[in-house]
Design a protein around this nucleic acid. Structure first.
Lengths: 143, 143
DNA sequence: ATTTGATGTAACTATTATTGTTACATCGAC
DNA sequence: GTCGATGTAACAATAATAGTTACATCAAAT
């Protein structure tokens, strides 16, 4: 599976903003976040743009620009983050349609779709059970 | 998420072999399977090679060569298939290690790992609940 | 022993997604 | 107007999946 780190980076960024705000700052810059994440600021801005469209973060422009949370950490689950940045399913069906003349080729798509739907539902349930507040608590506990 | 169709193709191939054997044939060729799947026989052979190493399928060489199941369809779950072909995790941590000087950068990895482990476990539970016999039943029902 | 039909596997290409990077227009507080 | 940051386009680098060709190898059948 081509696992990707988008959920990790997005959760990291939001958690960082949340802690930074909790320490009294108004906004966090993509540069600051990128330093903690160890990546390029544009990667952060791109991800935060998607999180912004989903209503999880907001940006301010001009002088004193930067990012802030649109909701409290406790009101953001990992499922919210996941859905904001991962539109596609975990498992794909055939790239090219299988032989419709074959019994298996004809029926395997719907049969697997039912299973895959169940898997996605389970995955979402798990992600929904953890908020970024939970994540931050774990992070601070480890420190 | 770069969803891939490896699980779909692998389940399709094994189910096809199972039905073919149930109809009285000894072995199925990668060419026959590839026709049903609508792909290249080498793609099938590569996947079946991995399924063979996992003890789900066996091949015979020489004249009258081809593939057969190593276990009955009822004794193969989608989790068995998944584990045979997908070694990696669904979610990855940071590609480059985050800033260890930062509280969040230091603690976010372990915190997310705990969540990701739970997600993987849920995913496995779901996949383990369906056998290829279940899949074949669905396939035949739809015909 | 030779023939034969399929596997096993290397090698290469095409496609796609993620990630990293540079560059620059734009915004808005000061 | 200045200044520091966002918004976003454009491109390169990396990696995984998938498709394809080619060919050595194997073992049953003749």
């Amino acid at each position: 599976m081509s696992a990707n780190s988008r959920l990790t980076i997005a959760a990291h960024a939001l958690t960082w903003i949340g802690l930074y705000q909790r320490r009294g700052h108004e906004v966090a810059t993509s540069e600051q976040i990128a330093t903690s994440v160890n990546t390029n600021p544009v990667v952060i801005r791109r991800l935060l743009a998607e999180l912004g469209k989903a209503g999880l973060a907001r940006s301010r422009r001009g002088a004193g620009a930067g990012w802030m949370l649109a909701r409290d950490l406790a009101a953001i689950t990992l499922l919210d983050v996941y859905q904001a940045i991962e539109p596609g399913p975990v498992f794909a069906l055939h790239r090219a349609p299988p032989d419709p003349e074959c019994v298996v080729g004809h029926g395997i798509g719907p049969a697997l779709t039912a299973v895959y739907d169940g898997v996605e539902a389970a995955l979402r349930r798990e992600l929904a059970a953890t908020t970024l507040e939970d994540v931050l608590r774990d992070v601070l506990k480890a420190a």
